[in-house]
Structure formats: C-alpha cells, structure tokens
Design a binder for these strands. Structure first.
Lengths: 190, 190
DNA sequence: ATCACTGGCTAAGTGTGTTAGCTTATGGCT
DNA sequence: AGCCATAAGCTAACACACTTAGCCAGTGAT
C-alpha cells in the first residue's frame, strides 16, 4: 500500500485545476480524490471539509488574480495601467473559471479570515492604478469598490456565458474600460 | 388524503420566497416540500428537477428586478433615471437575495431559453435610461453591458457581504453611479 | 530495532436528488 | 347522480455525495 505523498497545498492546487477543467459546480470530493489517486475519505487528512477546500481554492484564485494584475501593471500608469489591470483580471477569470467561481458567494467568517485577507491584497494593484488618477484620499475606498464591481461584474457575467447577443465581447470590454477611465478623469476630485 | 392544490407557479414562488429567507445555498427540495405542505417527490409533479426549479426562480428574479427598475425610472431621465434604476436594482437584490443568487452561474441552454429572454427583457429599462445620454446606436450594446456589469457586480458583492472595511456602502454606491454618469456624459459619442 | 506519528484504507451513517409505481381526489361527461 | 380519465399526492427505493470512526501500514526519529 504505497503512499501518494499528498499535502494540503497539493490537494488544493489539484482542486483548483479540476474546478477549472470541469466547472466549479461539478467539483466533488470524489472526483478530486480520483484525480489525486486516493480514496475520498483520505482527503479529510488534508482539508477539514468541502467548505474548507472551497475557501482555500478561492484564496488561491484571489492570490493568482492579484499576482496577474500586479505584474500586468508593471511599468504602466494612467489609462494604460487601468486597461492592463482590467485585462489581466478578465483573462485570469477566463483562463481559470473554476478557481474564480469558488470566490463568489462566500461569507467572510471574520476580519482575520485568510480569505478576506487574500481578497483585500488581491485588490492592492488596483489601488496602485488609482494613484495615477486624481482621486481624493477619502474617495479611495469608493473608487476601489467601483473598479472591483465593474470588472468583477463583467468577468463573471462573461465567464458564465451571460452576454447573449453575438456582439463582440472584446469590444464591450474595451468600451467599459474607456468608460471608467473617462469617468475617473472627468470626476471632480472632491 | 386532501390535496394541497399546487401548481408550477405556486411552487416556484414559494421556492423564491424560501431562498430569500434562508439563502439560496440552503434551498433544498425537502425544505421546499415542507414549506408548501407536501412530501418531496410530489414536487416533481410541478417541476422537472432542481435545476429546472432554479432556472424558474431565476427567471422570476430577473423579471422582478426588471419590473422594479422599470417602474423606478417612470417620469425620470438622465442622471436621475440612472440613479433610480441602479438604486432599484440594488434594493431588489438586497430585499431578494435568494432569487437573485439563483440567477448567477447559469449557462443559457439556447437562444430561446426563457431564462435568456427574461435576462434580456429585465435589462430593457436600462436601454431607456441610456437614451437619455448621447450614445451612438452602435455603442448601445456596449453601454448596456457596462451598466449591467457595474451594477450587477456591486449588488452581488454587497449581497454576499464582500465589502470588508466598514466604509459606508451607500456612499460607495452613490459614488459608482456618479462615476458612470460622469463617464457617459464625457465619453465622445463616436 | 523500535516506536510514535501520520497518511492511507474500509465500513458505515446521514442527507439530498430522483424515479417507479400505487392510490385517490378532482372535474367533466353522460 | 354516477362514471371515468387525468393528475396530484403518497411510499419505497436507489444513487450519490459529504463526513466520521476506526483500523492498518509506511515513515522517520531515537
């Protein structure tokens, strides 16, 4: 009876990959166990429950998205940085739909929830982007939430196949980025 | 053995109410059966499956949101109409979180999917709102998708408790509306 | 070489979605 | 009023999925 040599990170990573492949809704403990070459109950040596697994996958997804956005804005600023950040988020969600789907609909358990921390840090790059605009310090949180709402909304709707008419989604995305950029520029700083 | 006198609409409406009360994730066929005073298998006389039920609840949710937005913009135009529409959507989602949660993550099955139709018509009022701005006809779809992304994103994140810091969400919402309004106004029509 | 630890296993329990097949209330027709 | 087709409810049973309990064996330190 040889051992598979799993640990928590391996299991979570495999779960994230599997969710991307077969869709988050189809992720089950049984399928994940099969994927990593082990029987279902053995997974519970590495994660406490399915909910625990999902939260860890979500954290991985948020961290990944944040990293992608962070490196996308390197050396850019202003409209350029905004576009690069938004594009990076969108491409991450399209490339990793399962991981990202795991992040929606999770109530944060507390202020020091690792998931909440991951969510906060993953949005960090957007703060950097906003520094390229003339935003009053008091409005920083509002602006961050606006960006997050708009790009998260677009990415999740697109990822779920929610845009019906066959009009080019790339064009719609660029239009949204331009709308936000224009708004941020024209809005009075106070 | 008296009859409960159910039909599909009754079951779906009860399901929507129950989802609002206990949360969409906690909606089960068993709980719904108990709610309507019937045994679980009896529900299958009125809906084909749980997936069918969810899609019907989602359609009810989208229709309800669309109606709320539609009546909110009566007699308003421009920034006023935009704010009223956005506020109506947000309040609908906060008042009916379960119904609205049912709408996310559903692949439309086809072009004549009743769900797709409901989604399209529910966004109709936003088209009316956009007529108050100087949008090129070719950009109408892009603008509609932008509005939908932004307000859907905000509403779902807020409804899921995703906004961490204790900064006032009302203020953030107004800020978002103002950002979009400013952007739509300043963006060149071509 | 031994021993504590730990990662794997099987067995079993609970809850949820679903189907099959029976029974009887309901409403229309004669 | 009585008859009958339809369909709404029921029980029983199955298929999975998540989870726990408890056993066994591989692993690494002493």
């Amino acid at each position: 009876m040889p051992r598979a040599g799993l640990d928590t990170d391996t299991v979570v990573a495999a779960g994230a990959d599997l969710a991307d492949e077969i869709g988050f809704a189809n992720l089950t403990m049984g399928r994940l166990a099969e994927r990593v070459g082990v029987r279902t109950p053995s997974l519970y040596k590495h994660v406490a429950s399915q909910d625990d697994l999902v939260r860890r996958i979500a954290a991985v997804g948020l961290t990944g998205a944040g990293d992608a956005i962070g490196s996308a804005i390197q050396g850019r600023s202003g409209r350029d940085a905004l576009g690069a950040a938004a594009r990076a988020l969108r491409e991450f969600v399209l490339a990793h739909p399962g991981r990202y789907a795991a992040t929606v609909g999770l109530e944060p358990t507390g202020p020091d929830d690792p998931l909440a921390v991951a969510a906060a840090t993953s949005m960090g790059p957007f703060t950097a982007v906003l520094r390229g605009y003339d935003i009053a310090p008091d409005d920083m949180t509002n602006a961050l939430r606006a960006l997050r709402s708009a790009f998260h909304g677009f990415a999740t709707i697109e990822s779920a196949g929610g845009f019906q008419w066959s009009t080019d989604t790339d064009e719609s995305f660029d239009w949204l980025v331009d709308l936000i950029d224009t708004g941020l520029r024209a809005k009075p700083a106070g």
